[in-house]
C-alpha cells in the first residue's frame, strides 16, 4: 500500500546516494512494512547493515 510517489522518492534518493537495487528494495519494503504495522526491529538492523560508511579519518 505504499504509494508510487513514495516509491519514486525512494528510487530518486537511492540514486543520488549511489545505493544499489538490493538496498533500494529493502528500504521501500521497510517503509511499506512500517505503514502496514508489519515491522520488526531486526528489519531496521538489517537495513542499517547494508549502509556502507567509510572508515573514520584520523583526526583528534
Amino acid at each position: 500500500m505504499i504509494d508510487n510517489a513514495i516509491r519514486r522518492a525512494v528510487k530518486a534518493v537511492c540514486k543520488v546516494d549511489g545505493m544499489n537495487e538490493d538496498y533500494e528494495r529493502a528500504l521501500a519494503t521497510l517503509i511499506e512494512n512500517t505503514m502496514m504495522d508489519n515491522l520488526d526491529t531486526s528489519d531496521i538492523y538489517d537495513l542499517l547493515d547494508k549502509i556502507e560508511v567509510e572508515e573514520p579519518a584520523d583526526e583528534d
Partner: peptide
C-alpha cells in the same frame, strides 16, 4: 557503535529526503 551512528544518520537523512520529495509530488 560509531559505524552504527553513521549508518543511522545516513538512513534518517534518506528518510527525511524521501518524505520531503514524496510530499512535494503528492
Amino acid at each position: 557503535s560509531f559505524r552504527l551512528s553513521r549508518q543511522r544518520d545516513s538512513l534518517l537523512d534518506q528518510l527525511s529526503r524521501i518524505e520531503k520529495k514524496a510530499l512535494a509530488e503528492l
